[in-house]
Simulated scan of single mutants.
Amino acid sequence: MKIIFLQLYAEVEANYDITNTVLKPLRINLNELNKTLPHYDKLFKTTDYDLIFTISATQEHKDLVYGPLASSKRKEVLFTIFIPYKTFNSFTQQMFYILDNIAEGIIFVFNKYKTDPSEIKEVFETLKTLIAKDPERYQKWLKDLEN
């Protein structure tokens, strides 16, 4: 199973600028955990599928996680994580808030499908530590980052 992140902001003035320098190491480190969701392993008859988390922001009161929307043909499972929109004084504070919400959403999904989420929080805490040490690095979009 491969975890993928997308960003979609449908509400005016409710968006976060989450850079590829944040999302790429997050995706890589989560995928290195080699987790799968047994329900979808069985449904797709393989562990080679995409678990897609669309990140969105909302000013409305919504559930944190919506989904799943599954496609057997494309071997994809899609969830949307709605992060309550807030403004912050610093990039670091904003990223910590966003990452905490994304972690909570992913852990919710793993718990829903009875998959141990124990190492997931650690991946997020490690990334938060790196961002705190060098926020300028993670605030920049880099063109040369490959998928």
Rank of each mutant, 00 (worst) to 15 (best):
H61N: 04
E104N: 08
F96N: 11
N111G: 00
L8M: 13
I98F: 01
P38H: 03
V109G: 08
N89A: 05
L33M: 12
P84D: 00
T129H: 12
F88G: 01
G67E: 06
R137W: 14
K45C: 04
I98L: 01
I55Q: 01
I106W: 01
L51G: 06
E104C: 01
A132P: 06
V12W: 11
I107H: 03
T58C: 02
I4W: 10
D63F: 10
I28E: 15
G105W: 11
T115V: 06
T126K: 14
L8H: 07
S90L: 08
F44A: 04
F82T: 02
N147C: 01
L51C: 13
S90V: 11
L69W: 06
T58Y: 06
I18V: 15
L33E: 10
E11H: 06
L130M: 09
Q7W: 14
N147G: 06
D134P: 00
Q139Y: 14
Q139A: 13
W141N: 14
L33G: 03
N147I: 12
T58R: 03
T54Y: 06
Y138H: 05
I83W: 05
T126G: 03
G105D: 03
T126V: 14
K140Y: 13
F110L: 14
Y66D: 15
D63K: 12
A103C: 15
L43V: 07
S72D: 08
Q94N: 06
D48A: 08
F53A: 01
Q7R: 15
G67Y: 11
L99C: 03
T126E: 14
D50I: 02
K140W: 03
T21K: 14
K73W: 08
R74F: 07
E32L: 12
N20A: 07
L145Y: 12
L130N: 11
